[in-house]
């Protein structure tokens, strides 16, 4: 199935279409920046010693920050001029630590009124860390 970098219109969306993957490196500075912007100061995201003592490999990336990059994978492809995000369901499968992630997705179903996508993010080991389903609708 062909991959379109950026859609010109909602009508270009086709079942089976892959979203262009997005590679992102999430650093500790990104976690600090996100904590400030989102008012999320939960220690799991900044207290490395606490997390190591609890058996984790490092501080964990905010689940919502990982999903924000998954959304960018969508909006880079179907810009807000083309499609609106109506709904989504996210599940965090395993802890994500700072480092590189790859986000991608697939068009599952599409008609004139909506498109249903499945989305994922993988860690550096290639494991799925977060999955989501999303519904888009065309911008009038």
């Amino acid at each position: 199935m062909i991959e379109v970098r950026t859609l010109d219109s909602f009508a270009q969306i086709a079942q089976g279409m892959n979203l262009p993957p997005l590679d992102v490196t999430i650093t500790r500075a990104d976690l600090v920046r996100y904590a400030g912007a989102s008012d999320d100061y939960v220690a799991q995201h900044w207290d490395q010693q606490m997390m190591l003592e609890a058996g984790f490999d490092d501080v964990v990336v905010h689940g919502w920050l990982c999903f924000a990059h998954m959304c960018r994978c969508v909006t880079n492809w179907a810009t807000p001029a083309v499609a609106t995000i109506v709904s989504y369901r996210i599940r965090y499968l395993r802890p994500l630590y700072p480092g590189q992630i790859t986000c991608g997705g697939l068009v599952e179903e599409v008609d004139d009124d909506k498109a249903q996508l499945s989305l994922w993010a993988r860690n550096m080991a290639g494991e799925k860390v977060t999955i989501a389903d999303m519904v888009l609708r065309p911008v009038p």
Binding site: G63, S87, Y88, R91, Y92
Partner: peptide
């Protein structure tokens, strides 16, 4: 319980 983690979200806009 000394640890809590976020496991899922569902949003409708």
């Amino acid at each position: 319980y000394n640890m809590f983690l976020h496991s899922a979200d569902a949003v409708v806009n």
